[in-house]
Design a protein around this nucleic acid. Sequence first.
DNA 1: CGCATTTCCTGGTAGC
DNA 2: TGCTACCAGGAAATGC
Length: 305
Amino acid sequence: MKGRFAIPELPEVETVRRELAPWLTGATITQAVRVNAPAGPKYANLELAANTFIQAVNRRGKFLLLPLDTLDAAAAVQSSEQLELVIHLGMTGTVLRAEDNPNYAMKHVRTRLELTTNKAQPSTLLFDDTRRFGRFLVVPAGDYRTLPTLHQMGLEPFDPNLTDKYFKDMLAKSTTAVKTYLLSQKPIAGVGNIYADEALWHARIHPETPSAWVSSAKARKLLAALREVLAKSIEVQGTTLRDYRTVNGEVGQFGNYLNVYGKAEEPCPRCGKLLTRRVIGGRSSHFCASCQQRRRKPPSSVKEA
DNA sequence: CGCATTTCCTGGTAGC
DNA sequence: TGCTACCAGGAAATGC
């Protein structure tokens, strides 16, 4: 494992959301600026956030969504456009409270928000994004045209509308490797590399199985497994690799519950055969070739080419 | 359009 | 020790 990693997937982002909400909900943004990063779509339109207040700290998949309400009634009438601050942590995005980190190295801090909290305290939010894989931008509320992944995102894992049949129907839409398709965020929101590998192992599905070949029974097991690993990880504040810390300096414990991720050449906890690592869809993937058998033929419901 | 591949980006690490 | 080459990853861009 390398770097200051959390690999923020749904549980890690939910952990951050829960930490940010008490601090930011109801706070006024007096200034919002991009610092130490080139202009571009990743950290964009921040000036629009000035003179607004943060209504809520929400999460959609791996994105944090902060609806902003204007403080200027006249402007609200003129624009009639509600705004939203969109934050994606990417690989290395970290949200910091400046007053808690007086000696913080500013080298990779990309944006800064000057705030007045709902307790009338001044506060400064810093967004450190070392590798610049993150996003921190203001958009018209709900307008995700510049964020195609968010735009096409599937239902939240715990959305009651996400039934077994709905999930199976989503998987049926693609013939790409089921692991790759999960990472696209289209069948379900918030699943990244770690939890995809873990859930596929629990459901005994080979990660290279064409998504549409996954049977109804396997789809049901996969959805249950995804919910199980995500819920457990949220409970223990996510997976911490190396020296990552949450906003409040805590360490997620889900690493203790991993069965396959990062465990190539170690014995499968279920059958004892050595686990395999293989690049699938350009991503490092971990599975048990023995108990995650790849089906040889498509199910009868899928037309042969 | 669907799917596969490449790019973005930096710091940690292996190997010499 | 110092240097190079390589690797990690989510989402977007590009290629076919």
